[in-house]
Design a protein around this nucleic acid. Structure first.
Lengths: 196, 196
DNA sequence: TTTTATTGATTGATCAGTCAATCAAAAATA
DNA sequence: TATTTTTGATTGACTGATCAATCAATAAAA
């Protein structure tokens, strides 16, 4: 079996496996063995490629955020007007993949981890800033800067809040419901400002 | 030293210690030794009174939510009108104690834990329902039931979202800012419905 | 003396991380 | 082409550390 050029294949397999294991385990306290097993390799190989468990987890967060970022960029490109771009950001946030229970569990685990791992925290801060700034940039085209800041902050909080509430799976809100709630928030605030 | 009637004293000391340790550790992966040390007793004693680590952690969540509940009840009693009661709920949520970094870290850890521990999950579901229903009951006095549901859902999400964003400590929002954002949300929606 | 509080020492399990050894493809050499 | 050498891929077995949980022993009240 040993062919050359396995490294990228294995790295991806391990990162994907980590995501899956974290997702249904619902926590970052997963063992290298579990991850390796899920990826179909030995624990030793995981160490060989990533050096440490922490590093593997960090790569996993990075990969996850990268995908989210790519989706957002694509969706925003497809939208024309600022208002449509705002909707695009919202839709990506609640895309089925993102809103799946395992994905949310993983997110939550990352947030908890960020309390301890400075590097994880940095990644999540970047995500938070990006979400805020995507909203802000488009809002500024529709209302005064001060209001735009406030509305962006509120919308970002609402998106994150809908996530965390979803994680409890009690009275689960549908994807459409979550989108509607967030859209309403924007529409109402923009209307109140006599926005066009 | 061994006096009789130590049990309740030790239990409280251990639960408080757990909360503190979880808070600044930022995760539920804390050791019994750390907790016991913080409480000034031996690890063996912690086991003696709680049976297991999991049980101690569960009691800790329970205690934490109980306190939040008590504050909420008190604050709502002091408020007269439905609108004032809504404000009371918001203010309790963002009370300085609740919004302190260690407290938020502990919350986050509990949410992550809820993915694995059914009992922890149950407690958090109760919290989520209570928040929602406190909002809902008062909103129903101010607008049609359907709208009340939507607004309660949105406000609850916003509160939780402001929490989770605070946990990253990037561009921290002030307590007053968070309160204002949530109050605005309510006011705007109620006004839009021509509420009195 | 019986009961309650308390601990030090110990056990057993779990894991991250290491390492020396193996295997097979590729590259070099004859 | 056939043979040898090198190199990347891979693992099983091991180590050391950590930790929850247990228990037998002690000390002080009742």
């Amino acid at each position: 079996m040993p062919k050359v050029g396995m490294e990228p294949v294995r790295r991806k397999a391990l990162v994907d496996a980590a995501m899956r294991v974290i997702g249904d385990h619902g926590s970052l306290t997963v063992t290298m063995s579990e991850i390796a097993k899920q990826a179909g390799v030995s624990p030793a190989l995981a160490h060989h490629y990533f050096g440490s468990k922490e590093q593997l987890l960090i790569e996993t967060v990075r990969h996850h955020l990268q995908r989210l970022r790519d989706s957002t960029v694509t969706a925003m490109r497809a939208a024309k007007t600022p208002r449509e771009k705002l909707s695009a950001v919202i839709h990506v946030s609640f895309h089925a993949d993102q809103f799946a229970p395992e994905t949310i569990a993983a997110w939550l685990a990352f947030y908890a981890e960020a309390q301890r791992s400075e590097e994880t925290r940095r990644f999540l801060v970047i995500y938070a800033r990006r979400l805020r700034s995507n909203l802000l940039a488009n809002l500024k085209a529709l209302c005064p800067p001060d209001d735009a800041e406030r509305i962006a902050e509120g919308a970002a909080a609402m998106i994150d809040g809908l996530y965390i509430r979803q994680s409890l799976r009690s009275a689960p809100i549908s994807i459409e419901g979550s989108i509607a709630l967030t859209e309403d928030y924007l529409t109402m605030h923009l209307n109140a400002l006599g926005g066009r």
